[in-house]
Simulated scan of single mutants.
Amino acid sequence: MRDPAENGQLALLLEVAGTPKPGNVDRERDYGDLRFEHFLAGAVGARTGLRAAADGASIGTAFESSIEGMSGQSGGNTQFGALLVTVPLVRAAADGRLTPDGVTETVEATTVEDACAFYEAFEHVGVAVDDPPEGLDSLDVRRGAAATDALRERGATLYDVMALSADRDGVAAEWCSGFERSFEAAGWLLDDEGPIHRRASRAFLRLLAAEPDTFVITRNGETAAEEATRRARAVLDGEADADALAEEFVARDINPGTTADITAGALFVALERGLEV
């Protein structure tokens, strides 16, 4: 029987194996120099941090360790956001608190040092992020470890940092909503039938159809994000082909990465709740 650390790693692997996931790397599609095997290696590398989370390490420490391990492949950032969703879920599951309220208690208990570790994780890999809120340049995550003094001066915990971005970043919104979408999509996965790579694809499409992907907004703009949501709905309604849309979005570099991150979290919750592999 797998423990939370093992299910965390398996969730990362099942997420990238899910196909088709329009705009994302999957087992049938690569992005030039970012390929399927890089995600497999990233999931293997993240295991040390996931194990730390399951064994009781603080979320920030476990997350920074998982990113350091994930970065040990030549493709760059493969699962930064997915781990930011999955690590606190693993931590909560290890404590027997894998519920929206339990995970909320877990993330609200993070500390300033957790926030510092989160910023230090940006030293390991490049991450596409939006500009910080007005007046908070000192807390720009792109500063990495250079921002830790500002974090300590403000007494900002990792939960506080997530709350600053929750209105414009889908992963941060998960932290501040009891991981609502991850738990909802886990239910879809458990209620669905067939091979998991297809269930993951359908869950991804349902998430994307429900609201615009914030990573697409950051990289491609709101119009592209709204288009991605509209066209995911068309696939679900049987009016468009998912594989054709996947090929098109890869060609156009429209990458709903936040939706993939939440799909990984959903897969973890579903595995913990009995999804059979």
Rank of each mutant, 00 (worst) to 15 (best):
S177D: 11
E180L: 13
E180Q: 11
R181N: 06
A185H: 09
A186D: 02
A186W: 03
W188S: 02
D192P: 06
E193H: 12
P195F: 12
P195C: 08
P195A: 10
I196H: 06
I196P: 03
R199S: 05
A200E: 04
R202Y: 09
F204L: 08
L205T: 00
L205K: 05
L205S: 02
L205C: 00
A209C: 04
A210R: 05
A210F: 07
P212N: 05
D213E: 10
D213V: 03
T214Y: 12
V216W: 09
V216M: 07
V216H: 03
I217F: 09
T218D: 13
R219K: 15
N220M: 14
E222H: 12
T223H: 15
A224V: 14
E226N: 12
A228P: 02
A228R: 00
A228L: 05
R230D: 15
A234D: 11
L236R: 00
D237V: 08
E239Q: 04
A240P: 06
A244M: 12
L245Q: 01
E247N: 05
E248V: 07
F249P: 01
V250I: 14
V250L: 13
V250S: 05
A251R: 12
R252Y: 03
D253E: 13
I254E: 04
P256D: 07
T258Q: 03
T259V: 04
D261T: 02
A264L: 11
G265S: 00
G265C: 04
G265A: 06
G265M: 05
A266T: 08
L267Y: 06
F268W: 09
